[in-house]
């Protein structure tokens, strides 16, 4: 079982690498959006909070689009039937897919982040802090997005508006990120711990809810 789980991880990783072009395109669009944002607000002086909030919201949308794209193809009816009847619990498969999506997103974000920071006129001395902030918050964002995606892609759910119910879960991430950016040099270890705690909370219920929604709404 462990050998096959490792094989599964390896295969999921290669599957995710094949899907990197889409993520790359999404980050290119983020660069364009950041340029428009900076150009639109070029006459207004503001602190780091506003571009950071913009960045977080954009990352949330990128994560949502990426997760929905992966879920729509990887949890199509025929695949889902095989996953449900496999010896691995669907929750584990959901968890593995989420982690692979996270790795895919964070890897590309790390590459793109210096350019995005320059475009958004954020001091490059904040690069490591912002990367750390995004790396921690993205874990929760991906797991929240997976709940949203599992409802959105479902065949049997007539009201896709119900997927919006998961969006308030994103608000604490935004608030705490803003709080961190208010403190000079992002030097607030306790606030960083919030993201870890929030991720653990998401980890406890997100794979369960995601797989429940997939089973009940998509088969």
């Amino acid at each position: 079982m462990i050998n096959n789980f490792i094989r599964l991880l390896k295969n999921e990783l290669s599957l995710m690498i094949k899907g990197s072009i889409f993520t790359f395109v999404l980050f290119c669009l983020l660069m364009i959006a950041s340029s428009i944002f900076s150009l639109a607000l070029r006459h207004i002086s503001f602190d780091i909070e506003i571009p950071l909030a913009f960045l977080l919201i954009m990352i949330f949308f990128i994560s949502l689009i990426k997760v929905e794209k992966v879920y729509a193809s990887d949890f199509s009816e025929a695949k889902l039937q095989q996953y449900i009847l496999s010896p691995f619990a669907l929750e584990i498969i959901v968890f593995v897919k989420n982690i692979m999506i996270y790795l895919n997103l964070i890897f590309l974000f790390l590459i793109f982040s210096p350019f995005i920071l320059i475009i958004l006129n954020i001091n490059l001395s904040y690069l490591i802090s912002i990367n750390l902030l995004l790396a921690l918050s993205l874990l929760s964002i991906v797991f929240i997005s997976s709940m949203t995606a599992s409802i959105t892609i479902s065949r049997n759910n007539k009201l896709s508006i119900t997927s919006v119910l998961t969006l308030p879960l994103f608000v604490p991430i935004l608030i705490v990120s803003m709080a961190i950016s208010n403190v000079i040099d992002f030097d607030t270890n306790k606030l960083y711990l919030f993201f870890l705690a929030y991720f653990l909370l998401n980890l406890a219920f997100s794979p369960l809810l995601t797989s429940f929604a997939l089973k009940k709404l998509s088969v």
Partner: peptide, 26 residues
């Protein structure tokens, strides 16, 4: 269970698909 629709991944090769689905079925 083998249904009517295909469950393999389009972007994977035959070899990779076989390995993937065998690992899923342990």
């Amino acid at each position: 269970y083998l249904g009517e629709n295909h469950f393999a991944y389009d972007q994977m090769t035959l070899n990779q698909n076989i390995d993937y689905w065998l690992s899923i079925h342990n």
